[in-house]
Amino acid sequence: MKRNLRYFYRLLWQTLLFWVCAMALFAFFRFYGLNSIISISLKGAVANLSMAEIYGYYALTGILLGFIYAIVEFAYEKYSSKRLAIGPSIGLRTITYFISTIAVFTIIMEFISDSYELDIDNSIGWWLDNKVLHSNLLYVFIASLVFSFLKIATEKFGRGIFLKMLLGKYKKPQEEKRIFMFLDLKDSTGTAEELGHLKYSQFIQDFFYDLNEIVAKYDAEIYQYVGDEAVLSWPYDKGIANANCIEIFFAFESNLTKRERYYLKEYGIVPKFKAGVHGGILMVAEVGVVKKELAYHGDVINTSARIQEECNKYNASLLVSETLLNDLENKTSYTYTSLGSILLKGKHEKIEIYAINKK
């Protein structure tokens, strides 16, 4: 519940900031300086308002839209099926936003009408013939597309990363401290042979949908999907906070357990995963032109992958390096078993590894 609330609050302040700025900008473009231009004057209800009041009402509109958009986005993320195609999903959201936007403008117009004792038509269907509102709705629609684009870009590159890419921070390699988790399906070869390539692809889609439902709640970023393996990443501080980089694994297991009946019915098997986690300093750089993305280079990634490979050897589901384990917050919910100092494949120095289980 706490993680859901934290996710909602983060989404709320983002939508509030965007829509307040967007609507204030619209007020500036629409009304600023009109009365000072010869032959142009503000008429109707707007003529009774100062520019400060106009900005205030548009800012209030932005606040209401921000609240509604946050609630709608949160509800769709949590309760709607992510298996909907992009087209129907966008269509449902658009209809919801359209109805909500008209409701917001109706509330604002009613408020202005009562405050200034104006005779403004707010009867059912008033918006059908109101050309001023039509321009507002068109602007809101365009702003919604911009908001969606920013959200998609942020989800692809990670929070905070997209802005840094726009500013060109990663044109030259930068040093960062991050955590990586290599999350791999157990017995993938046998499962693929049993299900066949079509059913196996659907199987992969399903459990990655389940993974995506919890990624944002644990401040994780998905760096790559490689077949039936996912590579997750965190800025170091966010990964160790509340043991996010560990807790996400058990939350994912819990999600899969809740859907056990579905997996058994559809595939005759419930997916089980193994993971290796490690953190440290590495290099990050922007690569490519046609398919631009961020690439991470350094020993941290290689070590994380090698730790995950040790899961089969020690019959463990989750392994973590000692250096990362020592930095984790809120470790009382887990038990730790040392596997000793292990020389990982391709490495020259041994590393202390621990198996982690939920109490």
Rank of each mutant, 00 (worst) to 15 (best):
R6M: 10
Y9L: 09
Q14G: 05
T15L: 01
M23D: 04
L25K: 00
F26Q: 09
F26E: 11
A27V: 05
F28N: 07
Y32N: 14
G44F: 09
G44V: 12
A47H: 06
L49N: 08
A52T: 15
Y58R: 00
A59F: 03
I63R: 01
Y69D: 12
E73P: 00
Y79P: 07
S81A: 11
A85G: 15
P88H: 06
G91P: 07
A103I: 13
I108G: 05
S113G: 11
S123A: 06
D129T: 11
H134K: 08
A143C: 04
S144M: 06
L145M: 07
V146M: 03
S148N: 10
A153R: 13
A153I: 05
T154R: 10
G160W: 02
F162D: 07
K164N: 11
M181T: 08
E194H: 10
Y200M: 05
Q202W: 04
F203K: 06
F207G: 10
E213V: 03
E213L: 13
V215T: 13
A216D: 13
D219Q: 06
Y225F: 07
E229L: 05
W234S: 06
Y236N: 06
N255H: 11
R261E: 15
L264A: 00
K265T: 15
F273H: 04
G280F: 00
A285L: 08
Y296N: 09
N312L: 09
K313M: 05
S333F: 04
Y336I: 13
L343N: 08
L344W: 03
G346E: 03
G346P: 04
K347E: 05
H348A: 09
E352K: 00
E352N: 12
Y354N: 13
K359D: 01
